[in-house]
Design a protein around this nucleic acid. Structure first.
Lengths: 118, 118
DNA sequence: TATTGTTATACTCTATAACTATA
DNA sequence: TATAGTTATAGAGTATAACAATA
């Protein structure tokens, strides 16, 4: 369902995540982004390159660290993400509405109870 | 957790699934196995080759269809799967025991209610 | 003509080693 | 010396096309 709803934006899940984290953390470095998303640095390079080619993000030199690059959304990237995040929120609301608020709380509580990694 | 518990048997999840389906459906053809597991035929070949090299499964000509091969577990494959399935059942019981039977029923019911693919 | 098993192949995802430039 | 970003590369996982043997 997420794939379908993101098709108008031509965003894969990982692209959405990258753009969303950058949108809410402008100037974040590649390293920090990798840590936040559980992506390895070599695998992020190509994604950012592609998003940069689409003029959705841009790399700017980091103000305090000459080695690092700060990531930012372009104006068109910001516009795209406003719409994409609205769509994602609508999807979540659609799915959540299948349960009453009480059921939602029960489900989350039971899932937390079963999910205890050893 | 499944990966860890299957390590003594050197079985990846897909290997466990293949061996389990063959164990309970001796003589099943590659096509049927692919349909059952959602695997594409070209991608099953290598898995069965590897399991055959480990002498866990064997391909025998199909009795009624000269094109097809019937898949069977070897004696050592049967022994391995008896232990592996016991281990898998124990894991499932361990996780299930984190909820009371009533909670288990509630969780399954709520999950069924949210999971309605569009 | 259609199907089974197979080969070859390509594309994606993920992972590690090593380089460069800065710290 | 350690770290950030990058390159090259290797290994899984997954997908399609095409072929030989058989139906």
């Amino acid at each position: 369902m997420f794939l379908e709803r993101m098709q108008p934006f031509q965003l894969k899940p990982v692209d959405f995540s990258v753009l969303s984290v950058v949108a809410h953390n402008p100037g974040i470095t590649s390293r920090q982004l990798c840590t936040a998303l559980g992506i390895l640095p070599p695998n992020l390079v190509g994604m950012v390159n592609a998003l940069e080619k689409r003029e959705l993000v841009l790399r700017r030199p980091h103000p305090h660290d000459g080695r690092a690059m700060g990531l930012h959304l372009t104006p068109s990237g910001q516009k795209l993400m406003r719409d994409a995040e609205k769509t994602a929120a609508a999807l979540e609301a659609d799915v959540a509405s299948r349960l009453t608020p009480a059921e939602q709380r029960t489900l989350i509580s039971l899932l937390k109870k079963v999910y205890q990694p050893e």
